[in-house]
Design a protein around this nucleic acid. Structure first.
Lengths: 340, 340
DNA sequence: CCCTGGCACTCAGGTGGACCGAGTGCCAGC
DNA sequence: GCTGGCACTCGGTCCACCTGAGTGCCAGGG
């Protein structure tokens, strides 16, 4: 139908115009700027319908229209082509991420990069431990009854815990324990580690059993602790840019939610690799985010994402551009992690 | 002189009142609230002198007075007694920091704690590598030509680097290398590490020399790289609270400076342990911080601070309270790190 | 059946004047 | 050297008014 088609065009034009100017957009401006081939009056009729259907709304009578969350949603779903990144942008990504020395560095650079590309707040999650594999388990004796366990994963994460052991342990025993644990766990996905613990303890030489059990228990604990999931956040300064415009009253609740991490992690939990997830305004369950949109995607090779990354910004954001940026950065991060 | 004495009282009262109300304070309000034993008219005279001397200023005629940076400085320098923390606060600190599982956790909790106590932006620096001692050096073979070097310090920091080695290396060689390096470096301050490298290479068995040299070089590199110094920042949401009041136009430059880290690290570089440093407004060299004050102190047992921590806020802040909080948290962090 | 130009209507935001009150500086008196 | 009194200043607020953007509706034309 020619009608519906044009209405879609009108909606699209409204979104684009509003995103770039931040002014409610009126029929006249639309007709002037977007060459829709019809007069303002016609556009007004279409706009009335769009408003009826809930895609746009007027902040007040005698103002132009503004997309609603539903409008953005429709717009995003119909995003025909994701705007490809410019050559300059691709080069910027490479230049930015090249020369990272370790995981911390990779993620730190990614978050800065993403914030810079999108001019929004960027969020990068550390690779989930449970989906990483053990590269090495190190034990460093601290005292006779305390060991420092250091877990190194294939994604480059390093976690450490102090293990209190019931029996006195000398250097030799520690060495034995270390090779035992590494033989058992090295290369194994951490999610599978819990399955192996039982066997491992059973098969351990009797004098080592208590130790193996103790260290294994701590290992498993690190997997479930809340600190298990870490987040790097960057570009919060972008929130201040036009905060008055984008966020009704203050950015405070948003900043709080970001620092809370839990909120963002929950959102991240749902992301899959290669499929960008966009959640818009009210679609976000957490109250502080109801005025914001979240564009995220998983990174990592395989079929299951190692972690997620994304950007948070006003619902009035450049979805096409941000989706492209998020996807591109995720791909590079995935590559970098696969290499190391 | 009775005069000067009362003028100091007046200045103090102005600072206190302004800090708590955020309104320019007039002679009448001062007389009413602070019981200075003299009439408003007299206070006006004192205020005129204080203004002449640059300690206070009027935002406009017919408004009260506001302390200048110089006024705050004077106030801080004459802070007779740092307000001791309440029992509840002390208990809160312990409760907050207790049960931290590793360094990351300790610092993360500290920064949240500090932000909560002071209601400002809190900043905590990771222990400087060069002032930490090596607890353990681990080498994990990745491929025949690549090793993962993991450095564990006595402060609980863990750094990792991939080392490309020129010669093919088997597991046995790696083990040898590992014990060689640990024998040489374990327990040594990292600042002294560079001195030891020469000897170490000379005394190494010939076939290991190239390896030892390569790994040592990487180790030294990690000490000088910018990533050497890390920072945890928290409580940025506090900037949003009353941002319009405290920071003339936006919080943006401040947020940017904080994310920049370098700026803050430079400020931190100067802190000593146990002596709280306060830099106020224009005293800060970086432009973005000229509207802010920075209260910082080093933490760590010895005479040299392992790292620093502090808070950033408007010049209009509760200096006495913040100094007390910063000092208290630093002490606890120092203790926690010494224990582990 | 759909588009278009015209027209009356609404209302947010800006402008300018009047007023109010907090706060000051100064002065004469104690 | 302190104090009360007094004239003066000036930012903030309130209000009334106007302007202009934008709308909805309607009648007419393709």
């Amino acid at each position: 139908m020619a009608h519906d088609d044009r209405r879609l065009q009108v909606l699209r034009a409204i979104v684009q115009d509003y995103v770039s100017t931040n002014d409610p957009v009126g029929s006249k401006a639309l007709a002037a700027r977007y060459d829709l081939g019809v007069s303002p009056a016609t556009i007004r009729n279409d706009m009335a319908v769009l408003e009826e259907e809930g895609y746009i709304t007027q902040p007040h009578t005698s103002a132009g229209r503004v997309p609603t969350d539903k409008g953005y949603r429709f717009f995003v779903d119909r995003l025909s082509a994701v705007k490809p990144l410019s050559v300059a942008e691709r080069r910027a990504i490479e230049r930015f991420l090249d020369g990272a020395v370790d995981l911390h560095d990779v993620l730190g650079r990614s978050v800065r990069l993403l914030a810079q590309l999108t001019r929004q707040v960027a969020v990068v999650q550390y690779p989930t431990l449970s989906r990483s594999a053990v590269r090495h388990l190190e034990l460093v004796p601290l005292t006779a009854h305390r060991l420092l366990m250091v877990l190194i994963t294939d994604t480059g994460r390093v976690e450490q815990r102090v293990v209190e052991v019931p029996v006195e342990t000398d250097a030799e025993t520690v060495a034995e324990l270390r090779s035992l644990l590494n033989a058992a766990f090295a290369g194994a996905k951490l999610a599978e580690a819990s399955d192996k613990v039982g066997d491992l303890v059973d098969n351990a030489p009797p004098q080592l059993r208590a130790l193996v059990a103790g260290v294994s228990a701590t290992l498993l604990e690190t997997l479930v602790e809340p600190s298990e999931d870490r987040l790097v956040i960057g570009g919060t300064a972008n929130l201040a840019r036009g905060s008055a415009l984008d966020f009704p009253h203050t950015v405070r609740p948003l900043l709080e939610a970001l620092e809370e991490q839990v909120v963002v992690l929950r959102l991240m939990a749902e992301v899959g690799p290669s499929t960008v997830t966009v959640s818009i305004g009210e679609e976000n369950e957490h109250e502080a985010l109801t005025g914001a949109s979240f564009v995220s995607v998983g990174y990592g090779s395989g079929d299951q994402a190692l972690g997620g990354l994304g950007v948070v910004g006003p619902t009035r954001m450049d979805y096409a551009g941000n989706i492209a940026a998020v996807r591109a950065v995720a791909r590079y991060v995935g590559q970098l992690l696969a290499e190391s």
